[in-house]
Design a protein around this nucleic acid. Structure first.
Lengths: 357, 357
DNA sequence: GTTATTTCCGTGTTCGGGCACGAAAATAGT
DNA sequence: ACTATTTTCGTGCCCGAACACGGAAATAAC
């Protein structure tokens, strides 16, 4: 076995095998027109020399062009999805000189019809690969099937869709993260006998895939460890503060005994904000994701814990998986659960601007 | 401003500026022999076109050779340092085609004299850049000064040395991590009125840099939030199980009231192992780093929490910082505190084999 | 045995940037 | 004004891999 530092070139392989570099190239890329005898010889030498192509030279010489598509929910600048997008863009920059272009498309995550409309257009765009956040389960499955038919590889980020096997998934183990949420809230707090779960009201298809799983994990913990605990569920409207205020005020008036709450999406700051403005009572609140707004309330104490999941890495690695598969012909691992980061006011600052890639 | 996808080559810049590509190249690399007038023209076009060199072509054409040195403590396969090394090796692989070779050297972290002996040899090796884990404060500072003299860039991983400014630091904010450790142990546990801190006995120079800081942070928390708490300190010997057993047995006999303990290094499993074999009492134990052995005891409950710090990323990014500085002439950020990951039996599994890079 | 096909393989150009070399232009020296 | 020296700059080859092209060898067709 040759040393790693040997710098063996395709020309060296050719000489050792007694053929020309053209032939070696044909063997490496499996593009035929090689006699059995030559192929054997070359493969033997490749093996022995542990040949690794120079990725730089390879990228430079290759004339192939690739076009990737990324489909995300619309989002503001300080948002969970903005972080995913930042990761995507970082990977885009690294792929630029590999002749890969990446297009981003967005849908309204609170409106399944808008999502479907976008999905319809995807096959027509003839992408070489697709990254998507399959918030809406059924619609996403439909698109996935169509991509499978056309042999277009795709990856999921953020949430999975049961029964569909993307090239790769990057995201949390949603169910277990719900379990962890419950444990953080209830463990060593026997005094808590009821809790409230806040969720977003959506148009069309039922709740987002991801949050459904988290909720299930949460309830599983309750069932096993706090069977007597009463769980409430409250639906809130995205971007309608007045309406939410009314709903929350009413809920807390009717249920003064509730001392703990959780949101299964990243908008826990909405609740925290309400609590800060209206309630002086003790309340243990937990939510997801390291948004700027959530950080504020983690610092000020309205939020007890956040569970975070490295959205930037999801975007970065998701796109990278497509490139690894298509361009570098590497195996990519199919299921990649992100670490579930537990954030408190103590350790939060070190997550804030850490460029995790 | 030109589009990102425009694919502007050095030749294009040359034509736009009315010079040859040689001149553009001289401007880009600041290697003189260019008239003021030409330089201005070229710089203007570079700016306007937002030129980014093709890194692949650049790497391919460059004939420079680089030699990096990495200095770590000796370690076993399932060790904190093995994870740092894994990160280093990952980055090494990516640098291979950039003509960078990386040599690893090890010292005995329990013997300052061994460390110094290795350090002495470093300047003679004529490295282009150095990565080191400065466990021993004084000796490391001395080496750092020598490298500064020779204008050899160096990065620290794992711990900092006050007064020395490496090109970059990758590691925890040790002090704050000690603070966090105390909070995890004491917060919401008013019943704990005393605790024990375990530390390693070293030959020569006083305790490792890193652990001293952690301990300070820990004690700061106690001073502020639990002024009445009694703190004990117990020294243990690396690799001498019998001796440690005697020490621990004696300690616990003399101090049956101590119900909480912490180690500021990664070898908390030694305590956990002792507890599992000898004690059936309630004991809250906290330590650092995601070693296989620690995981076992986190699962079985002997360890309550681990604080982890992404050692793989430290190695990976540390070497990358050297390459970014030397080869890509990029700014690298000097102080990079790793996120302080809180691990429990609930979320631990997702940290285990997550390739965090 | 000759020609037509097919199979196989070597040569040469290309990608974008680095850099050596030597020529041209500008300046200095006499 | 003419040469010597320095400054400035353009040309051309190289890096390693991809791939087109066309020629040689092998096989088939007659």
């Amino acid at each position: 076995m040759a040393e790693l530092s040997d710098k063996i070139r395709i020309k060296d392989i050719a000489e050792l095998a007694g053929v020309s570099k053209g032939t070696v190239d044909r063997v490496i890329h499996n593009r035929g027109e090689v006699s059995e005898a030559s192929r054997k010889k070359v493969e033997k030498v490749l093996q022995e020399m542990n040949y690794k192509p120079n990725v730089y030279a390879s990228a430079l010489a290759s004339k192939k062009r690739y076009h990737f598509l990324c489909i995300l929910p619309e989002h503001g600048a300080d948002d969970y999805w903005a972080q995913v997008e930042a990761g995507i863009k970082k990977q885009m920059a690294e792929l630029r000189d590999l002749n890969v272009t990446v297009d981003l498309h967005y849908y309204d995550q609170y409106d399944v019809y808008a999502c479907r409309e976008l999905y319809e257009k995807v096959p027509g765009m003839q992408p070489d690969a697709v990254l998507m956040a399959p918030l809406f389960k059924d619609s996403s499955e439909k698109l996935a099937r169509k991509l499978e038919e056309q042999h277009i590889p795709f990856v999921f980020v953020d949430s999975q869709v049961e029964g569909v096997e993307p090239l790769a998934y990057y995201g949390m183990h949603s169910f277990k993260s719900g379990h962890l949420a419950a444990k953080l809230l209830f463990h060593e707090h026997p005094e808590i006998e009821s809790a409230v779960m806040f969720h977003a009201v959506r148009r069309g298809e039922t709740g987002a895939n991801q949050t459904v799983q988290r909720k299930a994990g949460f309830m599983e913990y309750i069932r096993c460890h706090r069977p007597g605990c009463v769980l409430h569920s409250v639906g809130l409207h995205w971007n309608n503060k007045e309406e939410n205020d009314r709903i929350l005020t009413r809920f807390f008036e009717e249920h003064p005994e509730v001392k703990a709450g959780v949101t299964f999406n990243s908008r826990v700051f909405m609740i925290a904000d309400y609590l800060q403005r209206n309630a002086s009572r003790e309340f243990r609140l937990l939510g997801y994701d390291l948004l700027g707004q959530n950080v504020t309330f983690l610092k000020s104490g309205e939020i007890e814990y956040l569970i975070a999941q490295r959205p930037e890495i999801q975007g970065y690695r998701g796109v990278k998986a497509l490139a690894d598969h298509l361009i570098f012909k590497q195996e990519v691992s199919a299921v990649n659960y992100m670490p579930m980061d537990i954030l408190t006011d103590e350790n939060m600052e070190f997550y804030l601007n850490f460029p995790s890639i």
